[in-house]
């Protein structure tokens, strides 16, 4: 009973004729149509040259009859996306920030846009999670130097802090040592008093000596009870949050040489819609009032 296998094994016409050390290469022929499909794909590829951009020329390239261009497609896609965003953006432009957060859909859109803008313009100083660094305020907590309402935040973003804009938020803490208003001893006492306000002081005697000095030099901005004055941008000294560090050395340094963080005014760099979205986003980080 001759089987196909035996025929394959022994018949010479079923090898390609190539032989190496007695090992012959079988010839299992492909179906003819397979070859035609191969030729068809070659012909098809010529069609691509005609239809799509193909050969590079000296100055440009063969554009193809369809005029397809990835660059133009991208521009169209972006334009379409912009158009889809347009209705929301127009709504944001027409709305007050407080109206934006009341509308779930608009709020979601504005926070997403704000997050993107924050990453681009704000994260360099405030961190990508808005948790800030020493000297750069944490925007996710509930401590605000200049106020944490939507309007306050919008104002801060728009005009900046100690920026060159006329409307900027600004204050000027004296450098008590440099200005020779207080000597080192007195500064130590004031620092102890300030630390005692948040129950982290160690020298009650010095704190007591510092109390009148505080009332005379600091209370006008930081408040009689140390709870800060928002209208002056005077930080609260009674809480657990310290922008420049809450250890004694940092506090002494702050009193001695002052601190003057600067935030640019974004009014000229960003459009009002982006600023509103940023305000909504920052407000939604958790500390918004």
């Amino acid at each position: 009973m001759p089987t196909k296998d035996e025929k394959d094994t022994f018949a010479a016409e079923n090898t390609t004729g190539h032989e190496w050390d007695g090992i012959a290469e079988f010839n299992n022929p492909l179906p003819r149509w397979w070859l035609w499909i191969f030729y068809a794909t070659i012909v098809w590829s010529v069609g691509y040259w005609v239809v799509y951009p193909s050969w590079p020329l000296v100055q440009s390239y063969l554009p193809g009859v369809l005029g397809q261009s990835d660059r133009a497609d991208l521009a169209t896609t972006i334009a379409e996306a912009k158009q889809r965003q347009g209705t929301y953006l127009a709504k944001i432009e027409a709305s007050d920030v407080s109206e934006i957060v009341a509308d779930k859909e608009l709020f979601d859109f504005a926070s997403a846009g704000g997050r993107s803008a924050f990453g681009l313009h704000c994260s360099q100083c405030h961190g990508s999670g808005a948790a800030g660094f020493v000297g750069y305020p944490n925007l996710a907590d509930d401590d605000w130097l200049w106020g944490g309402t939507l309007a306050d935040i919008q104002h801060t973003i728009q005009y900046g802090i100690r920026s060159d804009h006329d409307e900027t938020r600004s204050n000027d803490m004296p450098a008590f040592l440099t200005d020779e208003t207080l000597d080192k001893e007195q500064i130590n006492d004031v620092a102890e008093y300030v630390l005692a306000l948040s129950n982290s002081g160690s020298d009650a005697e010095a704190a007591k000596r510092g109390e009148p000095l505080y009332a005379e030099n600091c209370a006008s901005c930081h408040g009689d009870d140390g709870k800060g004055l928002r209208e002056m941008g005077g930080p609260r000294l009674t809480d657990a949050i310290w922008l420049y560090g809450g250890d004694k050395a940092s506090v002494v340094k702050t009193i001695s040489f002052s601190r003057k963080g600067v935030m640019p005014a974004w009014e000229d760099k960003l459009d009002p819609v982006t600023i509103k979205q940023l305000a909504v986003y920052v407000h939604s980080l958790g500390g918004g009032e």
Binding site: A140, A240, I241
Partner: peptide, 15 residues
């Protein structure tokens, strides 16, 4: 990012 936020009254908040 951030893992948690310390608030002014000393309490801790996660989002």
């Amino acid at each position: 990012n951030p893992l948690f936020v310390a608030l002014s009254d000393g309490s801790i908040r996660n989002a």
